[in-house]
Amino acid sequence: MEKKEIRFKINGEDTVISIKPNKTLLEMIREDLKLTGTKEACDHGECGACTVLINGVPVNSCLVLAMEAHGKEILTIEGLKQDDRLDPIQEAFIQNTGMQCGFCTPGMIMSTKALLNRNPKPNDDEIKEAIAGNLCRCTGYTKIFESIKDASSKIGGK
């Protein structure tokens, strides 16, 4: 099982790396690129902790092979801040205490990012649908929901 070279963009940076075919995108992001913001929990597509955007679309990186990143643009939680400013979604999660232990938070925020890119003013049902694949053991979701509403009002206007 030989390593193969792949090229892709992650958080805006061109990257070249040699990787084994049986590595997942999640393993590559955390172990090879040392971007540990993206979390590993269920490892089977059920929980959304590992959510990243590939070409703007949210996916569970635990179900994607690293090889498939070739030629793509990947966005992880580390790529959200611009210069030293946090993304408005990150700000909103902080201001509304949208997390407790924080383990689901990167995935939640990436799903929110995909939602608000596509639909800056989602209604309540659209918000719930967008984070249906992101499980949280701590918050009961209310604070997360409020954070997303706040982020949307900042980004999409009232």
């Binding site: 959304g48 949210p58 996916v59 569970n60 179900l63 649908e129 249906a132 694949g133």
Partner: peptide
């Protein structure tokens, strides 16, 4: 069928 993350793939 499932969440967006699954539907997208």
């Amino acid at each position: 069928i499932a969440a967006f993350q699954i539907q997208n793939r």
